[in-house]
Amino acid sequence: MVMSLRDWAVRFSEASDRDATIGAMAKYFTCTYMWDMGTAKVIVEMIDGKVYRINTDPRPLDAYDFALRASPATWREFARPVPEPMYHGIWAASFRRDLKIEGNTLVMMQNLRNFTVQFELLRKVGVPV
C-alpha cells in the first residue's frame, strides 16, 4: 500500500532533520525544489539544512528553484534499499533513465552535496507513489 503524501512528508522531514551527514554541513543549505513523481508532487523548502515546509499539494504558480521529474516507476526504483544500476542516483538516472532535471540547475549545483545525501534518504523513507 502506498503511503499518504502527508505521512511521507512527516517521515521525510524527520529523516532529513536528523541526518548527521546533512547536519555536519547544514548551514547555507537553503533552497526550494520540486519532486515530480507523476501521480504525486511535492515542493520541499529547505532553510539552513532543516526542512522548513513541504508543500504536498502544489498549485500551478507555486514557486521553486529546480525540479526533478520522472515516472512513478522510476521513483519507486529510487526508493529501493539498494537501487538497481542506473536508478542509484540523480546523475545516473538523468543520463540513462527518464529523470529530468529542470529549472535553475545552478541552485541544485550550489547545494549538491546535501541534496544528494537527502535524495538518498528515499531509500529509508520510501516514496508516496
Binding site: V82, P83, G89, I90
Partner: peptide
C-alpha cells in the same frame, strides 16, 4: 565530489 558520487555503487 558530489557530481561523481553516484558513479559509485551504493553497495
Amino acid at each position: 565530489a558530489s557530481g561523481v558520487w553516484d558513479l559509485m555503487a551504493p553497495q
